[in-house]
Design a protein around this nucleic acid. Structure first.
Lengths: 357, 357
DNA sequence: CGTACGGGCGAGAGCGCTCCCGCGCCCCCG
DNA sequence: CGGGGGCGCGGGAGCGCTCTCGCCCGTACG
């Protein structure tokens, strides 16, 4: 059987004219280009012997299919769009980093990669950038993060039949599309359970003003856990925007009213508690227990270090990939919703040696 | 002049068969496809009247070129690869987020987008992922971050003629390729200047063990600034790995030796100072001034809030784009190196009302 | 021995764009 | 008035892959 008669083919080829093409591989394996394509995309169609021959040729030539060509012909870019927000400042920290690593890793295993774009900050022309990427055929699907109340993106995408997964429940319309989220209510409830086990009875909640989906969810977890443990939540809830000084002022009055523990909706708010406690000469962890949320980088650094709820970002990334693949395969299928449980990282601020007064 | 004779063309087309193609635009404008292509890629070649006609047709049809087709033909993906690290834990914080937003934004203006991939954690097969992306023709260039001593990537890429920019000096071989970095020495020197202006004379430096490029750079800035101000640096340098407890132990002895201020190589180390000070009943900012580095999210949250050096990440992102475009245009050109200045964010830990003893 | 069937592989076309090259026109000069 | 040069535009091909379709051959069956 003749070999090595192709232009650029043969074992003499090395680095003379760019990477091998599918045609070169075909020649070397003694099959047609179509068969090589099948070996890559539908190996089950080939006879085992043929498949093996093709695979060896691919390996010998160190061949990888040209993504642009594949994507032009197959009408699918195998790219998933992710918009980076301009960072609303605060303790959001390495959330994105850990999530993106897990997500891009699992997506890669499934043959997809991530296209990063700068998401516009203002909600006005929120969908413009998404539209452009779609018309360019640059992406097949999207991952949304930082979903907020009144977010138009889920409906907009759904109406167009574009596959997407949201990291964060779409608070306006929970049924609109697939999502993965971390169960904030479960987290704050776990915090309450932990504190109750330490002997605390008057456990306050320091949250954000009502109206934010995430914040109300976390508040509700606290409230229900209190009820479940037979404790009253009455008058134990304080609210403040996500700012240390604002939180300090908001929580002050509660701390003078005999509260022995505080569950906060964020590490920033927990920090406000620290300050408010010190204002009255008390020490967090020893006099009053404090629990934060998000396990930001600051949590471990504080004095005393802050007990906080850590989001399972690696798992979130993997689930995103799974849901997205299912939706790409069947764009009209029933949406799936996954709620993951945050992990309570216990540190000095709820040290068990400090019994409540 | 005949119009509307093309398949799918004409003003009746709407959402029947996907977005318009270049051919449809050409028909509508009454020109050849090539002319439309020129209107997009080399508008200066067209007569103003023609250009205007084509532009209107493009707008009316809301046309965007198909990226895969463009990239197949022109042999350039217009994508820049960026590898996300698995996050080495610590206070790295929202560095990546702010940088990536600025970078993807400025890259987009130049017609490029970012392809995100999971960079392997171990340095062993560090370049494998990069090689794969190149063989697939998925990217035209790379941005490297987290460059470290003995990093093989710069040389590897340079040898192959692949355009890249490093965020962070390649400490092994400073001439190998373009880079942007933040001038750590300038930052610590500025911190010293600030402290001297407040009346401090015995200013210690708390850094990492010698051998890391970043750390040695920051140490040197402190040392030279001390000399410039006519102060002795002798015996004022402590070292510790980037861990709060380790730093606390390392800096303890110096604090008992009459030091009135400490410049730390990271916010984590500065935190260690806070703890060490409290061990001896002193208060950071009042008794001893402390300056951190990186302005992590924790800095503003601490009590007292921590003066720290903030990296100009938005600018870093923009410079990355600029250098990368220059290198893509002229792959063999002379490498450019840009050093940006960090900004000293003054907070309570160096409050000027607290005069040194 | 002829027809039906199906698994395994190949031939040809075309995805949408940009490359190379050449045609036609107008202006200028001989 | 004829020939050469430049500017503006178009024709044709092809980037590397995967689509559709159908051929071939081996087995089963009338």
């Amino acid at each position: 059987m003749p070999r090595d008669t192709t232009p650029g083919g043969g074992r003499g080829r090395a680095r003379q004219e760019g990477p091998a093409t599918l045609a070169v591989v075909a020649q070397r394996a003694g099959v047609s280009p179509q068969t090589v394509s099948n070996a890559l995309n539908s190996p089950e169609l080939l006879a085992p012997r043929t498949l093996e021959r093709v695979r060896r040729a691919i390996e010998e030539l160190d061949y990888r299919p040209h993504q642009a060509a594949r994507s032009l012909r197959s009408r699918s870019s195998r790219l998933i769009g992710y918009g980076v927000q301009p960072t609303p400042d605060g303790v959001s920290g390495p959330v994105m980093e850990r999530f993106l690593h897990a997500f891009s890793d699992s997506a890669h295993r499934a043959g997809y990669r991530i296209l990063l774009f700068a998401a516009p900050g203002d909600a006005d022309d929120e969908t413009d950038t998404y539209a452009e990427l779609l018309r360019e055929r640059s992406v097949d699907a999207f991952v949304l993060s930082n979903t907020h109340r009144g977010d138009r993106r889920p409906d907009w995408l759904r109406r167009r039949g574009i596959p997407f997964v949201a990291f964060g429940r779409p608070w306006s319309n929970r049924e609109a599309g697939d999502w993965v989220d971390v169960d904030g209510a479960h987290g704050t409830a776990a915090a309450v359970g932990h504190l109750v086990a330490l002997g605390h009875r008057k456990i306050a909640f320091l949250g954000w003003p009502r109206g934010s989906g995430v914040g109300d969810d976390r508040a509700q977890g606290w409230r229900e856990a209190m009820r479940r443990h037979g404790l009253s939540a009455r008058g134990l809830r304080a609210s403040s925007r996500d700012d240390v000084e604002a939180a300090r002022e908001a929580v002050g009055p509660h701390l003078t009213a005999g509260v022995t523990a505080v569950v906060a909706a964020s590490d920033t708010l927990a920090l406000g508690c620290y300050r408010a406690l010190r204002d009255t000469g008390r020490t967090p962890g020893r006099d009053v227990a404090v629990v934060g949320f998000d396990d930001s980088s600051a949590a471990a650094l504080l004095t005393p270090s802050l007990t906080s709820l850590r989001q399972p970002l690696t798992e979130v990334g993997q689930v995103c990939t799974r849901l997205l693949l299912a939706r790409i395969k069947d764009p009209r299928g029933t949406p799936e919703h996954v709620l993951l449980t945050p992990e309570l990282i216990v540190r000095e601020s709820t040290d068990s040696t400090a019994a409540p007064s």
